[in-house]
Design a protein around this nucleic acid. Sequence first.
DNA 1: CGCGTTAGTTAGAAGCTATAACGCACTTCC
DNA 2: GGAAGTGCGTTATAGCTTCTAACTAACGCG
Lengths: 214, 214
Amino acid sequence: MDGDAASPRERYRAQVQGEIKQHAWEQIATTGVSALSLKAIAKHLGMSGPALYRYFAGRDELITALIRDAYRSLADTLRAAYDSGAEVAGLAHAVRDWAQSDPHRYFLIYGTPVPGYHAPADTTAISNEIMTVLTGAFREAGVPPSDSPFEAHLDGHRQWAADPSVPTAALRRALSFWTRLHGVLSLELAGHFAGMGIDPALLFADELDDLLRP
Amino acid sequence: MDGDAASPRERYRAQVQGEIKQHAWEQIATTGVSALSLKAIAKHLGMSGPALYRYFAGRDELITALIRDAYRSLADTLRAAYDSGAEVAGLAHAVRDWAQSDPHRYFLIYGTPVPGYHAPADTTAISNEIMTVLTGAFREAGVPPSDSPFEAHLDGHRQWAADPSVPTAALRRALSFWTRLHGVLSLELAGHFAGMGIDPALLFADELDDLLRP
DNA sequence: CGCGTTAGTTAGAAGCTATAACGCACTTCC
DNA sequence: GGAAGTGCGTTATAGCTTCTAACTAACGCG
């Protein structure tokens, strides 16, 4: 309906909100979300202190917006890779690149849950978009069904999967894609492999290989 | 050397430090580490404000001590399970129970890295203890070698493994044990499966099963 | 039993989030 | 075009935090 036809005030407001979020991301990229300071953002933006509250009701609301944007960015990245022909391996490297390009952004989504934040409905919708891409890729990869207890359970609990034509085995693999690669990525980005001398990229590649074996 | 023969002052100091950490854990268990307040701990302890700085040089040092205790607790839990005959599956459920008994403690170790904290040498030593138990369990489980690139790489980068008699394949499995189960646990404890209707326990069991297949 | 070490106190600086009250500018409508 | 209304940005302030400084009191060792 209204589309882009916003009033000048609304355009200005949206632009300032964008600048606030951009400075917030810069701050997060260096210090992490725990040290995110509204006052510091305002200072960098030339305006002083409480002016920010005209644009975001508080720290939690800003963080919520950042989380939603991070989800959106990841979903768009995966969708773009998928639409340009990427298969499961391509998606895996897309998510890895995305995570490494801004580790704090990754942890904002998949790290320790931030207190006082409860996911609004649209972020779970975006999360579903991500799962749709993953399940689609595994359907095309053609994974054989298994008789594991979880896959049987999953057969009766797949309402989160939009497309009912995707085999349950593909859903199963998509979930493992998520948990296993997150396991490697999360520990790698947190530096848990640092003192061990191993190359996380090879571990990641090996885990990816295992996801694709029959 | 000195052993337990501490002076009364040292005994008192150690006891107060223990009480401080205990109250800190109670606070963390409810609000998470980001809301950990030294002043609130001091208030609960009956003493006012800066007295805490006699026992911990600052917030970061207290958190460092908590992280070390959490590592110690996990390592002891796994060691106890292993010494009482637990195999790989038993260790998996031990770590799962440990994580679920206090999710915030789990995230303190394996969640988003806390800014300003750099792991002292002894926590990496405790981490090595944990890996030693895991690799030992997989050696006894008897896993076949694989010709994957990562296992080949691991064969030349296994200085983190204390015991050189453990086959590289067991090391490989222990690493996957770590990353895969962490992947499931982390996402489960953060509530990412909440809206999907699936049972994370079954997913966990299935991932565990996959770790044990030839 | 005295003297030094240590624990605890209050005061205060600097930082943060967030609210309240006010002024100015811009938009909108008659 | 002028008046009324909406929204932006300001300063002041309350209440929270970590952490330092200066001082006091108690404890224990020689």
